[in-house]
Amino acid sequence: MKSIIVISTLLFVIASFMGIANYVQHNQSLSEKGLYASPQVPTFTSAEEETEQSLPTVAKQLQEPNTKVREEVVVPVPKKSAKSKTKKKEPQEVYHAAKKPREREINFKEFSRAPLDDYEALPAQATEVEVAESTKPTKVEEVK
């Protein structure tokens, strides 16, 4: 029976190391897909910040992380707004602005799993059109 304690301790330690290794690897793969860290975020103007519009490029990246063909919308930034004191939005803020948690209903039958939050589907197309109209992009590039 004591050998069980030894074997299980080894197993527990291995599981811990595997957890660390997989955690690092998983985070790296998310970063490569642009889902976790530093997604491309265009600069906001103060007017855009007031209306809190979503970003088309980020929304697109979130929806199609594996696509190789990417559309980049270049928004002209006026010098005044570039120098303005309005702070740049953090990637996390942009992510959460794009994915707003919905009101949840707890069903007693779902006791087995923690009623975890889920997000409404991204209104990607709608926001893209809205933002595209409001910002009037001058140039659309296709990057392979």
Binding site: I4, I5, I7, S8, L11, F12, I14, A15, S16, M18, G19, I20, N22, Y23, H26, L116
Partner: peptide
């Protein structure tokens, strides 16, 4: 119970803890 906890429950729980919400 002891075997299940020591060999399955606790190690898998430890692994999944790294990805917990």
């Amino acid at each position: 119970y002891v075997l299940v906890v020591l060999l399955i429950g606790a190690p898998t729980g430890m692994f999944m803890a790294f990805f917990a919400k």
